[in-house]
């Protein structure tokens, strides 16, 4: 097991190992509910809460759960917290609950949560598991918000329901429709891999420069 510091545990999930942009996990909710900023925010918060709670509980019970049935145990723990989140959202924000529909229940099969339980929380103490869950939850939420902002601003010309461009703006309806989800995420991933490629090129350039100086 790799040794990490607490701040690494927290920060890794936000950018370097971002669950959506780098690990490409949890794409269903990322694509399905990000047609408005409000929906993205609600989905992000709900997933964040479920992820933190289930990571803590998995970590607490890691000595009790036998290795053979761990996946089923994780699923049960996650399903319980999703049921709680579902009921909370229904009571607090009924309109958003209705807009998200079945996708709240589908947090159960969000691979990020099961992935963190299996890869991290089941092997680490509670505090670290919570930090890791927070990092990944924030990373997921930020990605959802980026997607939601792009899609709502371009697709309906609004942000959180407020009109941005005035009546002359012709909205790009495609961005709030399903193809827009694929398109936005595709370009986002394109941007990430372009950055990675540039960083790799720069590192290679620096190496070559150093080598040239040594030769000189």
């Amino acid at each position: 097991m790799k040794q990490t510091t607490p701040s690494q545990d927290l920060l890794a999930g936000i950018w370097k190992e971002n669950p959506v942009l780098i690990q490409v996990l949890g794409l269903c909710p990322t694509l399905a509910v990000t047609n408005t900023v409000a929906n993205s925010l609600a989905m992000g918060i709900a997933t964040f809460a479920v992820l933190c709670c289930s990571s803590v509980l998995v970590s607490l019970s890691r000595k009790v759960i036998p290795n053979e049935v761990r996946i089923s145990a994780f699923m049960l723990i996650i399903a319980t917290f999703v049921t709680v989140a579902d009921m909370c959202l229904e009571a607090l924000v009924p309109t958003i609950h209705k807009a998200l529909g079945a996708f709240i229940a589908l947090i159960v099969v969000n691979c990020i949560i099961l992935g963190r339980a299996e890869a991290f929380a089941f092997k680490r103490p509670v505090g670290r598991a919570l930090l890791d869950a927070c990092g990944n939850g924030i990373g997921f939420m930020v990605t959802l918000l980026i997607m939601g902002s792009v899609r709502e601003v371009l697709g309906s010309g609004t942000f959180l329901g407020f009109s941005l461009f005035g009546p002359g703006f012709e909205p790009w309806v495609i961005f709030v429709l399903p193809p827009g989800g694929f398109l936005t995420l595709g370009f986002l991933l394109l941007f990430v891999s372009w950055r990675e490629q540039r960083a790799a090129l720069r590192a290679a350039g620096a190496d070559a420069g150093a080598a040239a100086r040594r030769v000189a």
Partner: peptide, 21 residues
């Protein structure tokens, strides 16, 4: 090179989804 992998697949999926629209 920059498009290889998931980004390209998602962009293809976008056009497929457009067709199903």
């Amino acid at each position: 090179a920059v498009c290889k992998g998931t980004a390209l697949t998602l962009l293809i999926a976008a056009s497929l989804s457009l067709a199903f629209g």
